[in-house]
Design a protein around this nucleic acid. Sequence first.
DNA 1: TTGTTAATTAACTGTTGATTTAATTACTAG
DNA 2: CTAGTAATTAAATCAACAGTTAATTAACAA
Lengths: 110, 110
Amino acid sequence: MTNLPTTFAALSDPTRFAMVERLMAEGALPAGALSAGVEISAPAISRHLKTLRAAGVIQQEVKGTHRIYSVRPEALQMITAWTMSHREFWESSMNRLEMALSEFQETKDD
Amino acid sequence: MTNLPTTFAALSDPTRFAMVERLMAEGALPAGALSAGVEISAPAISRHLKTLRAAGVIQQEVKGTHRIYSVRPEALQMITAWTMSHREFWESSMNRLEMALSEFQETKDD
DNA sequence: TTGTTAATTAACTGTTGATTTAATTACTAG
DNA sequence: CTAGTAATTAAATCAACAGTTAATTAACAA
């Protein structure tokens, strides 16, 4: 639940990953909205939501017949904390490319 | 291979995750060293190494009969780039705790 | 109550994944 | 070349996972 491998497992499915990205971009959404426009069935989406919730990646808010889902910031923070705890490792080869740090530098000056 | 869900899938197994953490902490290691001290069989370790390699998380260097494995910094950088690209999302609830950012701030002044 | 909509759970199928033991490849040493 | 060591691939098993259709729960509105 609150450990990294479980979080990574939740995000390892492309469908779930896309759902999480959409929830972060658009904010909280009901299950129906996440189901719409996607080719897979509603029950499949429902199961993915359950998996994400069990892993602590998303949270649910019941609103009448709708269930509103949103990403738990703590999940992202946990991943960030892990990468940062190993920062000295991957940063040592930073001269090779501009990937993560350049992305970071972009949003740094706000 | 070079996409996030695949990377997350590679890190979703507790055994593999532990192997990656050990490789980052101790540096490059031969397969035998990763196998020693762990309760699972050598072939199982070998398959895990193959999975990690296919996902681009680790790399292999052949040295005689030994295969030396090490973590590819790019894999960590890719994860970091992703979390940073969503930084405005999880950072907005940062007042709740000190997790990732505090970790980051600690190592910032070097 | 009856019907409608939102979403889930149930039951089933096919695929992938982790593990083991046994066999194989490949390098090194005598 | 023979033996030993490092590591992998082969073959088989069992569990977990993603997907489907069908059935169920729950809220709301007439």
